[in-house]
Design a protein around this nucleic acid. Structure first.
Length: 226
DNA sequence: CCCTGATCATGA
DNA sequence: TCATGATCAGGG
């Protein structure tokens, strides 16, 4: 077994690749790829995701696109606690803070990224050394009409506040499923945003994140909840 | 700097 | 104990 050298040509091929990884550990995949495993993720937080990108043939990079543009599929790892619940929120994409011509959900990056997601569950307990963390069975997911409607409502509310110059009043407590949180290398990083009275201000960059309750729903709907 | 991949660490 | 706010690494 070895990392993918080319992008999958179909969703079936992507699905097949993902299923072959189930049951293996991050250490297995790193070793087979000749990559050194970090002893913890304090200094390499995105390691799991990047390793999976390599194995599944996702085009690396930082483009604001889906991981598999030809297939219209986004790849996300989903760290799980011992009880099988998400142990972290899920980053979706960078948030535009200068507003847009109009608040258009259909054209938004959030909708685009969440149109179809290949979720890869992974042991996410800090007590388990990264190398021993196992990869679970993948989930190919598309939002239900209800989920889509709520995501849209959250996004539109957050975007409206941003457009109205209320970015500094938005906290991670806003939004039922989608929340807005800082997204930067450190607190000194700032970017332009719309301030009160419409003037430009400097503020910390933000990103959209999915709450754990949302990804939990996905797990429940897929595997069935007791 | 922007944006991707995320998890960490602290306060409530 | 747990979510919020902060932080880490790399490509372009």
């Amino acid at each position: 077994m070895q990392p993918a050298s080319t992008p999958p040509q179909s969703i079936e091929e992507l699905w097949q690749r993902a299923n072959q990884l189930a049951g293996l550990s991050l250490g297995d995949l790193a070793a087979l790829a000749g990559i050194e495993m970090p002893s913890d993720f304090r200094r390499q937080k995105g390691f799991s995701g990047q390793l999976l990108e390599l194995w599944l043939g996702a085009s690396a990079g930082s483009k604001p696109e889906q991981d598999f543009p030809e297939l219209g599929v986004e790849l996300k790892t989903l760290p799980l606690s011992a009880t099988g619940t998400p142990s972290e929120t899920t980053y979706v994409c960078y948030a535009p803070l200068l507003g847009q011509e109009r608040i258009d959900w259909e054209a938004s990056n959030v909708r685009n990224k969440l149109h179809c997601v290949l979720w890869i569950p992974i042991d996410g307990e800090r007590e388990i050394p990264p190398a021993q963390r196992q990869i679970g069975t993948p989930i190919l997911w598309q939002p239900s009409d209800e989920q889509l409607a709520q995501l849209r409502a959250d996004w539109e509310e957050l975007m409206e506040r941003i457009s109205l110059g209320e970015i500094e009043q938005i906290t991670a407590r806003h939004g039922q499923y989608l929340q807005l949180r800082p997204k930067a290398a450190d607190g000194s990083k700032v970017t332009d945003a719309i301030g009160a009275d419409g003037r430009l201000i400097k503020t910390r960059p933000r990103g959209f994140y999915l709450r754990k309750s949302f990804t939990q729903q996905i797990l429940d709907n897929h595997f069935g909840s007791a």
